[in-house]
Each structure stands twice: as structure tokens, then as C-alpha cells.
Design a protein around this nucleic acid. Sequence first.
DNA 1: CGGCATGTTGCGCA
DNA 2: TTGCGCAACATGCC
Length: 270
Amino acid sequence: MPELPDVEMTRRDLKRWVVGASVTAADTRDARLSRPASPRAFAHALTGRSVERVERRGKWLRLDLDDGGKVFSHLGMTGGWVRVAIGAPVARFERARIDAVLRGRAFSLRYVDARRFGRLLAVREDIADWTALGPDLLADGIDVGRFSDALAKGRRAVKEIVMDQRVVAGVGNILATEGLWIARIDPRSSGNALVPGDARAIARGLRRVMARELEDRKRCGDGHSERYFVYGRAGQLCPRCSTGLSSVVLGGRTTVFCHGCQVHRRPPSR
DNA sequence: CGGCATGTTGCGCA
DNA sequence: TTGCGCAACATGCC
């Protein structure tokens, strides 16, 4: 489920489902997902309230309640929200439930998350995970000047910097891998070795991939896009230059790239 | 059975 | 204070 396009689709669903709705009951028992808040705070904060807005920054979602309360939701690796009939049986891997009424119609939202890498907590103030996020790839776009500075400052591999949520919020492993391939930049390149024009190319690559993914999801709903250029295709041929695709681990994440057409900017010599 | 997975955190150590 | 490398988290799927 993760990656910005999935979270954005979830935001649109939630917006359609709950904005203006009054919550009649809510529950979670998962202390892990609601950390550091207590699971009880969830029911307490939501019951009797109505939802005024559904916001998203990067991969985080925030429901704004009519009393100023906020519910933060991060889908982690396997989280998702589904809408079911009121009273529907507990879904497999269901971790939280929000029963609500909108225009006289009762319904239930369920948060489902097999691996429980997500988060779901009700609080009164914005959490640091939210406020620390950099500009949102979709809503704010990338300011090439600032992006370029952030890349130049980093000694890490460019892919790790691009995935840093403080630099650009919403870029995950797929977007970063695909975006760098489009930009023709080797993901191992060190940030401070990039040359003028690279930052713009990467920004454009990320925007392209995101827009494409969003369109895919609008058309097909969920399910994994099988249309990746290189992600998950190590060993296959590069769709641009037919070189065999390579794979390395950067920042603990598998990264696929093409030796043939992605230029490796090497760090300044020591 | 082993290996990998769309994300993040926390810990030991430089 | 910053950053790096890595194990950990919990489960599904191939």
C-alpha cells in the first residue's frame, strides 16, 4: 500500500467517505500502532466527533476533527483503510474500526494492516513525524534550488537522500528507483558529486513516476503496477539501452539500476 | 524451507 | 550533534 500515490488514493477515499460524517463509535486495541498514545485515546478522541478534513503530507494522513483533535495514520508497508457495512464482521488483520454516519447513512471504516508497521494515533497536536516532513512531492512539488542544496550537502548516496522524508516527503523505494532511472543518474552517486542539471533531472523523474503511478491507480484501483521500468527487474534488460540491469543495496533497500545508461557521479577525490 | 517485500525506528558505534 | 550500518518489527508470498 505505501508510496505516495497509494496514500494519495487513500486520502481521496477517506475524504469521500468521512468528511462531514459523525463518528458513533471507534476502537483500537493495538498499542503498537497507536504508540506513543494509548489505544484508548483513539475511541475517546473520535466518538461523538465529526471529521472536517483529511490531509496528507508525504505518506502520512491526518483526519481533522471538529473539536481540534487530530488522528494520524501511516500505512507502513501493508496498511489500508476499507469501507464496509456497519456491523460487518471483523476483517482479517483488522486493527481499528470507526463507525460513522453521513447524511443519514451508517457505515464502518476498518484499518487493516497485516505486518503492523503502520501507525494510528489520536492526539491534540501535530506530531513530530508530521512536522518534520519536507515539501510534499505532489502537493508542493520540488523546489529545484533547495533540492539541489540538500543533495549537495549529503555525503550519502543520492538515492538515500531522495528517500529522506525531510528532503522530499513521499518518495519511497519504488519512486526513487524509477525516478533515478528516468533521470539517468546512478543511485550510488554521492549527493555532493552531482553536477548542475542533475537535481532538475531527478525532480522531473520523480514527478513523472508519481504522475504515472497515480494514473495507474485511478484506472485499476489497487494491486501492484506491473509497469515498472526497472524496479524488481534485476537481471532483465534495461528498457532503454538493453544492458542487463544490476542490483545493489543502499540504505538497506534493494536498488535496481542500469550500468549502461545511468551515469555514476563519483565523490570529489580525497 | 529460505529469501524477499511498497517503511520506519532504535541501537551501537564512529 | 551527525551519520552510518544494521537488526528489528510481523506476516505474506513465491
